[in-house]
Simulated scan of single mutants.
Amino acid sequence: MKVLSLSLFYLSIRQSIPIENIKSVKMKKVLIIDDDTRNVFALSAVLRSRGYKYEAATSPAEALLLLKNNADIGIVLMDMMMPEMDGYSLIPYIREIPQSDPIPIVAVTAQAMTGDKEKCLAAGADGYLAKPIDIDKLLALLKTYLQ
């Protein structure tokens, strides 16, 4: 099981994945919502290295705009602790966007105390990943929701 801090994602994947093993994944995009550009960079590096297509938003307003204008987004990886509007408040707005199928939302958060997972799920998240991210769990969630 690989557990890495987000800031170490890029270095680890760059060194451990031969480019010839990366296949293009023909599926919907992943939307990363995180106000910390270092986290966006790290998550996008992991996704890119595995052939996933993605969009990134550093604010809730940007995220809602991307969701409304991109029907090919198939899952949201959302930081729950953002300054202007946290993920708990953003989830209902995402759920109001008309779509043929509801978009799965995975809470990605440093909030890893007892009860935090349940709080995220009660707010409407479909999944939960605590930071530092376990890459294997992330990839398993993506495979489950996107294929």
Score class of each variant (00 low, 15 high):
residue 109 T to Q: 00
residue 87 G to M: 00
residue 124 G to H: 03
residue 124 G to I: 01
residue 124 G to A: 06
residue 120 C to E: 01
residue 101 D to W: 11
residue 114 T to I: 10
residue 112 A to W: 10
residue 86 D to T: 04
residue 86 D to C: 00
residue 96 E to C: 09
residue 103 I to F: 14
residue 96 E to G: 07
residue 90 L to R: 03
residue 123 A to K: 00
residue 109 T to L: 02
residue 111 Q to A: 08
residue 110 A to W: 00
residue 108 V to W: 06
residue 84 E to Y: 10
residue 117 K to D: 09
residue 87 G to N: 07
residue 100 S to C: 05
residue 125 A to E: 05
residue 112 A to F: 09
residue 86 D to E: 03
residue 113 M to G: 09
residue 101 D to N: 14
residue 88 Y to Q: 05
residue 111 Q to S: 07
residue 83 P to A: 12
residue 107 A to P: 08
residue 100 S to D: 11
residue 120 C to G: 03
residue 85 M to T: 05
residue 109 T to V: 03
residue 121 L to C: 05
residue 99 Q to A: 14
residue 103 I to K: 14
residue 96 E to R: 09
residue 112 A to D: 12
residue 102 P to N: 11
residue 98 P to A: 10
residue 111 Q to E: 12
residue 114 T to M: 02
residue 94 I to M: 13
residue 103 I to L: 14
residue 104 P to R: 11
residue 123 A to W: 00
residue 119 K to G: 02
residue 89 S to T: 11
residue 101 D to P: 05
residue 95 R to S: 10
residue 120 C to F: 00
residue 115 G to S: 06
residue 94 I to C: 04
residue 106 V to M: 11
residue 97 I to A: 13
residue 94 I to F: 08
residue 93 Y to M: 12
residue 101 D to A: 08
residue 121 L to Q: 07
residue 100 S to F: 12
